[in-house]
Design a protein around this nucleic acid. Sequence first.
DNA 1: CTTGCCTCTGACGTCAGTGTCAGGTTCTAG
DNA 2: CTAGAACCTGACACTGACGTCAGAGGCAAG
Lengths: 132, 132
Amino acid sequence: MCAADHGREQGMRIGEVASRAGVSVRSVRYYEDQGLLVSTRSAGGQRQYTEHEVERVRFLQRLYTAGLSSRTIAELLPCVDAPSADHSDAALERMAEERDRLTEHIADLVRTRDALNELMTAAREYRDAEFA
Amino acid sequence: MCAADHGREQGMRIGEVASRAGVSVRSVRYYEDQGLLVSTRSAGGQRQYTEHEVERVRFLQRLYTAGLSSRTIAELLPCVDAPSADHSDAALERMAEERDRLTEHIADLVRTRDALNELMTAAREYRDAEFA
DNA sequence: CTTGCCTCTGACGTCAGTGTCAGGTTCTAG
DNA sequence: CTAGAACCTGACACTGACGTCAGAGGCAAG
């Protein structure tokens, strides 16, 4: 069943990467289009990946759910992939920006969650008053 | 029925509500389309609002930035507007759901922020190694 | 009345990430 | 060798919360 059954650590194909990372095949191709992921190709032109790419896709997902756009992620990745003085200064600043944005966003969400809790408390009081 | 004790707030028009709440006129109309906001109309058909609607729009914004969709918000509002036993049970559950989702999302964001911080630390070490 | 700003409805455009379809090729199990 | 699963590229569809434009009308001031 498994292409890796022969003990060869050859490339996985896109379907396997997608299912392991829990995303769609379409998304994996999209990430590559956006330059967030690279692949080698088989003789026939099919994408080949290693375990490393599965991690990469999971990492991308984290950044996406954190609200970063493909564009922003693309700006950060060079530093992640090949840290160097050249990349670092720009990317560090970018990351700091995003981290701060995240921190702010988190605080906002917490406030909203608290507001939601207050609403629930109020609603419960109303309900309990009906039954009193 | 009118809020006599709200002062002499005649109807604001849509532009004023929008700027006070810090959103676009388009957005205010959209919220009304989605049933999240109501307005009275002047003789000529223009929307009229009170201070109360400004608060409402701000509240809607909070929910939007918390990641709730118009649809979800529409399900919660009846309980907010007219708390009653009928609405409460369903809406309470919905709110609890959303609160939990928020909590989870927040935890996720915190993890991502931490990951970002780790990346920054790694990048800094690289950079500092260059200068050493 | 006219000027000018604000508003009205309706409809199409945008962006990002993804679904999906079409028409064709590659790979693998039997 | 063959069937069929998985893959390829390319392109159009979709969702959501708006932006934006068009053509028409409201509303206070001069």
